[in-house]
Write a protein that binds this DNA or RNA. Structure first.
Length: 205
DNA sequence: CCCTGATTCGC
DNA sequence: GCGAATCAGG
Protein backbone atom coordinates (compact mmCIF):
# COMPACT_ATOMS: atom_id res chain seq x y z
CA UNK A 1 0.00 0.00 0.00
CA UNK A 2 1.36 3.35 -0.97
CA UNK A 3 0.50 5.93 1.57
CA UNK A 4 0.85 9.05 -0.48
CA UNK A 5 0.46 12.39 1.20
CA UNK A 6 -2.89 12.66 -0.39
CA UNK A 7 -4.13 9.37 0.90
CA UNK A 8 -2.84 10.15 4.32
CA UNK A 9 -4.55 13.50 4.19
CA UNK A 10 -7.80 11.81 3.38
CA UNK A 11 -7.32 9.31 6.09
CA UNK A 12 -6.69 12.03 8.61
CA UNK A 13 -9.64 14.00 7.48
CA UNK A 14 -12.06 11.13 7.50
CA UNK A 15 -10.67 10.07 10.83
CA UNK A 16 -11.21 13.53 12.22
CA UNK A 17 -14.61 13.47 10.69
CA UNK A 18 -15.44 10.69 13.03
CA UNK A 19 -16.04 7.95 10.54
CA UNK A 20 -15.58 4.42 11.69
CA UNK A 21 -12.38 2.76 10.67
CA UNK A 22 -14.28 0.35 8.51
CA UNK A 23 -16.01 3.27 6.85
CA UNK A 24 -12.77 4.98 6.09
CA UNK A 25 -11.35 1.76 4.85
CA UNK A 26 -14.23 1.27 2.50
CA UNK A 27 -13.89 4.81 1.30
CA UNK A 28 -10.23 4.44 0.54
CA UNK A 29 -10.59 0.94 -0.74
CA UNK A 30 -8.49 -0.53 1.97
CA UNK A 31 -9.27 -2.64 4.98
CA UNK A 32 -10.16 -1.22 8.31
CA UNK A 33 -7.09 -2.86 9.69
CA UNK A 34 -4.95 -0.82 7.42
CA UNK A 35 -6.77 2.26 8.52
CA UNK A 36 -6.38 1.58 12.18
CA UNK A 37 -2.81 0.53 11.80
CA UNK A 38 -1.88 3.61 9.88
CA UNK A 39 -3.86 5.84 12.15
CA UNK A 40 -1.88 4.58 15.07
CA UNK A 41 1.41 5.04 13.39
CA UNK A 42 0.39 8.52 12.46
CA UNK A 43 -0.46 9.14 16.02
CA UNK A 44 -3.98 10.14 15.21
CA UNK A 45 -6.16 10.76 18.21
CA UNK A 46 -7.88 7.53 19.16
CA UNK A 47 -11.61 7.69 19.07
CA UNK A 48 -13.93 6.08 21.54
CA UNK A 49 -13.23 2.43 21.26
CA UNK A 50 -15.57 -0.18 22.55
CA UNK A 51 -12.82 -1.94 24.33
CA UNK A 52 -9.74 -1.38 26.31
CA UNK A 53 -6.97 -3.85 26.18
CA UNK A 54 -4.65 -4.41 29.01
CA UNK A 55 -3.72 -6.86 31.61
CA UNK A 56 -4.55 -9.88 29.50
CA UNK A 57 -2.35 -11.15 26.79
CA UNK A 58 -3.50 -14.51 25.57
CA UNK A 59 -0.64 -14.89 23.18
CA UNK A 60 2.97 -15.08 24.07
CA UNK A 61 2.03 -13.47 27.25
CA UNK A 62 4.51 -15.64 29.02
CA UNK A 63 7.47 -14.04 27.35
CA UNK A 64 7.19 -10.36 27.34
CA UNK A 65 4.94 -8.58 29.75
CA UNK A 66 5.21 -8.85 33.44
CA UNK A 67 7.15 -5.84 34.52
CA UNK A 68 4.24 -4.97 36.65
CA UNK A 69 5.98 -4.27 39.90
CA UNK A 70 8.64 -1.70 40.49
CA UNK A 71 6.73 1.23 39.24
CA UNK A 72 8.88 4.31 39.72
CA UNK A 73 5.74 6.23 40.38
CA UNK A 74 5.92 8.41 37.35
CA UNK A 75 2.70 9.89 38.44
CA UNK A 76 2.88 13.61 38.19
CA UNK A 77 0.47 16.18 39.53
CA UNK A 78 -0.52 16.84 35.97
CA UNK A 79 -2.36 20.08 36.39
CA UNK A 80 -4.64 19.32 33.56
CA UNK A 81 -7.44 21.68 32.82
CA UNK A 82 -5.05 24.34 31.81
CA UNK A 83 -4.33 23.35 28.30
CA UNK A 84 -7.72 22.03 27.39
CA UNK A 85 -8.07 20.33 24.03
CA UNK A 86 -5.78 17.56 24.83
CA UNK A 87 -7.51 14.76 23.11
CA UNK A 88 -10.06 14.58 20.39
CA UNK A 89 -12.20 17.55 20.92
CA UNK A 90 -13.35 19.05 17.69
CA UNK A 91 -10.92 18.21 15.00
CA UNK A 92 -13.67 18.84 12.55
CA UNK A 93 -12.33 21.13 9.89
CA UNK A 94 -14.14 24.23 8.87
CA UNK A 95 -16.06 22.79 5.93
CA UNK A 96 -18.10 20.58 8.13
CA UNK A 97 -19.53 23.52 9.94
CA UNK A 98 -20.21 25.33 6.74
CA UNK A 99 -21.95 22.34 5.34
CA UNK A 100 -25.52 23.24 4.51
CA UNK A 101 -26.55 19.68 5.09
CA UNK A 102 -29.36 19.44 7.58
CA UNK A 103 -29.25 16.40 9.74
CA UNK A 104 -27.56 13.74 7.75
CA UNK A 105 -24.99 12.21 9.95
CA UNK A 106 -22.80 9.77 8.13
CA UNK A 107 -23.13 11.05 4.58
CA UNK A 108 -21.95 14.48 5.46
CA UNK A 109 -18.80 12.99 6.72
CA UNK A 110 -18.09 12.07 3.17
CA UNK A 111 -15.81 15.01 3.07
CA UNK A 112 -12.82 14.95 0.83
CA UNK A 113 -13.87 14.00 -2.56
CA UNK A 114 -12.01 11.04 -3.91
CA UNK A 115 -10.05 13.27 -6.19
CA UNK A 116 -11.49 11.24 -8.99
CA UNK A 117 -14.97 9.92 -9.38
CA UNK A 118 -13.44 6.80 -10.73
CA UNK A 119 -12.51 5.86 -7.25
CA UNK A 120 -16.07 4.91 -6.60
CA UNK A 121 -15.89 2.52 -9.43
CA UNK A 122 -13.05 0.73 -7.82
CA UNK A 123 -14.90 0.35 -4.62
CA UNK A 124 -17.96 -1.04 -6.19
CA UNK A 125 -15.97 -3.43 -8.24
CA UNK A 126 -13.88 -4.38 -5.32
CA UNK A 127 -15.90 -6.85 -3.47
CA UNK A 128 -19.27 -6.76 -5.06
CA UNK A 129 -21.08 -5.89 -8.19
CA UNK A 130 -23.30 -3.84 -6.02
CA UNK A 131 -26.17 -2.48 -7.96
CA UNK A 132 -26.44 1.29 -8.11
CA UNK A 133 -29.07 0.93 -5.50
CA UNK A 134 -28.65 3.48 -2.82
CA UNK A 135 -28.92 1.90 0.55
CA UNK A 136 -29.81 5.10 2.19
CA UNK A 137 -28.68 5.33 5.72
CA UNK A 138 -30.26 8.63 6.42
CA UNK A 139 -33.53 9.25 8.03
CA UNK A 140 -36.10 9.94 5.42
CA UNK A 141 -38.34 11.74 7.83
CA UNK A 142 -35.89 14.42 8.69
CA UNK A 143 -34.85 14.91 5.16
CA UNK A 144 -38.23 14.88 3.59
CA UNK A 145 -39.28 18.11 5.15
CA UNK A 146 -40.61 20.07 2.22
CA UNK A 147 -39.19 19.20 -1.07
CA UNK A 148 -41.48 21.57 -2.77
CA UNK A 149 -39.76 24.84 -3.32
CA UNK A 150 -41.31 27.36 -0.99
CA UNK A 151 -39.54 30.27 -2.53
CA UNK A 152 -39.06 29.88 -6.23
CA UNK A 153 -37.86 33.39 -6.66
CA UNK A 154 -34.80 33.02 -4.55
CA UNK A 155 -33.62 29.83 -6.16
CA UNK A 156 -31.76 28.75 -3.12
CA UNK A 157 -32.91 25.24 -3.40
CA UNK A 158 -30.69 22.49 -2.12
CA UNK A 159 -27.42 21.87 -3.79
CA UNK A 160 -25.08 18.97 -3.68
CA UNK A 161 -22.82 19.45 -0.71
CA UNK A 162 -20.17 17.04 -1.82
CA UNK A 163 -16.85 18.69 -1.06
CA UNK A 164 -14.56 19.40 -3.93
CA UNK A 165 -10.95 19.96 -3.25
CA UNK A 166 -9.21 20.04 0.05
CA UNK A 167 -11.08 21.54 2.96
CA UNK A 168 -9.25 24.55 4.21
CA UNK A 169 -7.71 25.41 0.92
CA UNK A 170 -8.71 28.36 -1.22
CA UNK A 171 -10.12 26.32 -4.02
CA UNK A 172 -12.34 24.29 -1.81
CA UNK A 173 -16.01 24.28 -2.67
CA UNK A 174 -19.04 22.10 -2.80
CA UNK A 175 -20.39 20.38 -5.84
CA UNK A 176 -23.47 22.53 -6.01
CA UNK A 177 -25.29 20.38 -8.52
CA UNK A 178 -28.95 19.67 -8.06
CA UNK A 179 -29.19 16.92 -5.49
CA UNK A 180 -31.47 13.96 -5.49
CA UNK A 181 -34.69 14.83 -3.74
CA UNK A 182 -34.35 13.93 -0.11
CA UNK A 183 -30.60 13.70 -0.26
CA UNK A 184 -27.83 16.21 0.18
CA UNK A 185 -25.90 15.02 -2.83
CA UNK A 186 -26.43 14.98 -6.52
CA UNK A 187 -26.93 11.64 -8.15
CA UNK A 188 -23.31 11.28 -9.03
CA UNK A 189 -22.01 11.93 -5.55
CA UNK A 190 -24.82 10.18 -3.78
CA UNK A 191 -23.56 6.95 -5.23
CA UNK A 192 -20.23 7.58 -3.69
CA UNK A 193 -21.53 8.89 -0.42
CA UNK A 194 -23.94 6.13 0.27
CA UNK A 195 -22.33 2.80 0.34
CA UNK A 196 -23.78 -0.52 1.07
CA UNK A 197 -24.71 -0.84 4.67
CA UNK A 198 -24.13 -4.49 4.91
CA UNK A 199 -21.25 -6.30 3.40
CA UNK A 200 -18.56 -5.19 5.69
CA UNK A 201 -16.28 -7.81 6.98
CA UNK A 202 -12.81 -7.81 5.66
CA UNK A 203 -12.38 -9.92 2.66
CA UNK A 204 -10.73 -12.74 4.44
CA UNK A 205 -10.74 -16.17 3.06
C1' DC B 1 -24.60 -12.51 15.35
C1' DC B 2 -23.70 -7.92 14.12
C1' DC B 3 -20.95 -3.96 14.81
C1' DT B 4 -16.96 -1.43 16.54
C1' DG B 5 -11.71 -0.09 17.45
C1' DA B 6 -6.92 -1.80 19.39
C1' DT B 7 -3.08 -4.51 19.56
C1' DT B 8 0.01 -7.98 18.11
C1' DC B 9 3.35 -9.71 15.20
C1' DG B 10 5.09 -11.80 10.76
C1' DC B 11 6.35 -9.78 6.80
C1' DG C 1 6.29 0.58 7.87
C1' DC C 2 2.60 -2.31 6.63
C1' DG C 3 -1.69 -4.79 7.57
C1' DA C 4 -3.96 -9.50 8.48
C1' DA C 5 -5.04 -11.90 12.38
C1' DT C 6 -6.65 -11.61 16.52
C1' DC C 7 -8.68 -9.76 20.56
C1' DA C 8 -12.44 -7.65 22.99
C1' DG C 9 -16.53 -4.57 24.35
C1' DG C 10 -21.63 -3.14 22.88
Amino acid sequence: MEWSEEIIAQLKDLWAEGLSTAEIGRRLSITKNAVVGKAHRLGLPPRPSPIRRNGSKPKTAADKTEQTAATPAPEAPTPRASVATTSAAQPTPAPAAATPAPVVAQPVAAAIAPTTPTASDDKTTRKEKAAPVVRTSAKPKTLLRSISDPEPKKRRGPSCCWPIGDPGTPGFHFCGATPIPGKPYCEEHAQIAYVRLRDRRDSVS
